[in-house]
Simulated assay, not measured.
Amino acid sequence: MLSQKVRYAIRAMQHLADSYGEGPVQLGEIAKAQRIPAGFLTTILSELGRAGVVESQRGRGGGYWLATPPNKLTYGDLVRPMRGSLSLVPCASRNAHERCTNCLAEDQCRLRALMLKVRDRTAELLDTIYLSDPMDALPSFEKMLVEQSPAA
Rank of each mutant, 00 (worst) to 15 (best):
G84N: 03
G21N: 09
Y130I: 12
R112Y: 12
L114K: 09
P139R: 13
A51M: 00
T68S: 07
K5D: 10
W65H: 04
R58D: 02
E55V: 10
T101N: 11
A92R: 11
Y64F: 15
R83V: 00
A123W: 03
P81F: 05
P139A: 14
C103W: 01
L145Q: 12
Q4W: 09
S85C: 11
L73R: 07
A12F: 06
R7H: 10
D133Y: 04
L86H: 09
L48D: 02
S149Y: 14
Y75Q: 12
R119S: 14
P70R: 15
R112I: 11
L125Y: 06
G49T: 15
Q14G: 01
A152K: 07
V118C: 04
G21W: 05
L48Y: 01
E98K: 11
M1K: 10
R80L: 15
F141C: 08
A137T: 15
A92F: 01
R121K: 08
T74A: 08
E98W: 04
S46Y: 13
Y20S: 05
D77L: 07
Y8K: 02
T68P: 01
E147I: 06
P37W: 10
S87G: 13
R110C: 10
V118M: 04
Y64V: 08
D107G: 04
R110V: 13
T74Y: 01
G63V: 11
F141G: 09
Y75N: 02
A33R: 14
T68V: 15
S140L: 03
D120S: 10
N71E: 13
L104H: 04
D18K: 14
Q57I: 05
Y75G: 08
V6S: 10
M1L: 11
P24N: 08
L131G: 09
S132Q: 08
P70H: 14
R35M: 13
S85K: 11
T128I: 03
D120W: 00
E98S: 14
E106Y: 00
R80A: 06
M115Y: 06
Q148S: 11
C100S: 05
A9P: 03
G28S: 07
Q34R: 14
S132T: 01
R112W: 05
N95M: 05
Y20F: 12
D133H: 12
L116S: 01
C91Y: 01
H15K: 15
A151C: 09
M144N: 03
M144L: 14
I10M: 12
I10D: 00
H15E: 02
G23Q: 09
V25M: 04
E55Y: 04
P134F: 08
P69W: 11
Y130V: 07
V79C: 09
R60Y: 02
A67F: 05
G28D: 10
E22S: 15
P150Y: 08
L45Q: 09
Y8M: 11
T101P: 00
G59N: 05
K72E: 13
I36W: 05
S87W: 05
L125A: 08
K117E: 13
K117Y: 03
M135S: 07
G23L: 06
M13Q: 10
G39P: 08
E29L: 06
L114W: 04
Q57V: 13
Y64C: 01
A151H: 09
C103G: 07
Q14S: 02
G62R: 07
L66Q: 07
E29A: 14
K117A: 13
E106P: 08
S46V: 00
Y8P: 02
S87Y: 00
K5P: 11
Q108I: 02
I10P: 06
S87D: 00
N102L: 12
S87I: 06
L145I: 14
M13R: 04
L2S: 05
